[in-house]
């Protein structure tokens, strides 16, 4: 990709995150929520990967961080559910709603209004957990796909240029796609063409 594309992607990245977080945090008031917001954030990550703004150097780091986010989101979700058992009466009980605390504990205002952010109890917390999880999970998938593509192309450094010309032995285990498929099928790759 050209430098212009990666520059624009870099500029758009924080906006993707902010917009995604907005959708996540307003999940209990407006259409959207954890999954949709997380997917928007992950779109930003996809943009960064495709445009080459995240070079090959940090790829493993991204993978690990995305995995960490995935675990964190899932643990957060189940922890809020267990919170219902600890602080309320039942698993998944909304133990924060209508408690009067300003931490999402305010009563819901009926009728047309601008929407009160600090309502709905554990719903926003679960939205946040799902948002983090989806952001992490989709990023993990994207990282894995990116790694596989570059691997199959014999492009270990991820700069979209094959490391060696076609027809030569490829270092680092990179193989043409046909050979990878043939290896999966357990056949020897034929050079009939």
């Amino acid at each position: 990709m050209s430098r212009i594309v990666s520059y624009i992607a870099r500029a758009a990245w924080p906006f993707c995150l902010v917009y995604g977080l907005y959708i996540v945090l307003h999940g209990h008031l407006t259409p959207g929520g954890g999954f949709q917001g997380g997917a928007v954030m992950a779109t930003g990550a996809a943009l960064m990967m495709v445009s080459g703004a995240w070079g090959a150097a940090g790829r493993e780091g991204h993978f690990r961080r995305a995995e960490g986010l995935e675990s964190l989101g899932l643990i957060g979700f189940i922890a809020v559910a267990f919170g219902g058992l600890l602080f309320g009466a039942a698993f998944f009980q909304n133990w924060l709603a209508n408690t009067g605390t300003s931490f999402f504990g305010l009563a819901v205002v009926p009728g047309p209004n601008g929407g009160v952010m600090r309502t709905a109890g554990t719903l926003p917390l679960m939205n946040l957990a799902v948002g983090i999880e989806v952001f992490g999970g989709i990023s993990v998938i994207l990282c894995a796909l990116q790694r596989t593509f570059h691997h199959a192309d014999g492009d270990e450094d991820g700069d979209d240029i094959p490391d060696v010309a076609d027809g030569e032995a490829r270092p680092g285990g990179g193989k043409p796609v046909e050979q990878v498929i043939a290896a999966i099928r357990g056949e020897e790759a034929g050079d009939d063409d």
Partner: peptide, 13 residues
């Protein structure tokens, strides 16, 4: 609920 919750919590931890 713990029979579903515990394996999930364990899997994520």
């Amino acid at each position: 609920p713990l029979l579903v919750g515990f394996p999930l919590l364990g899997a994520f931890l």
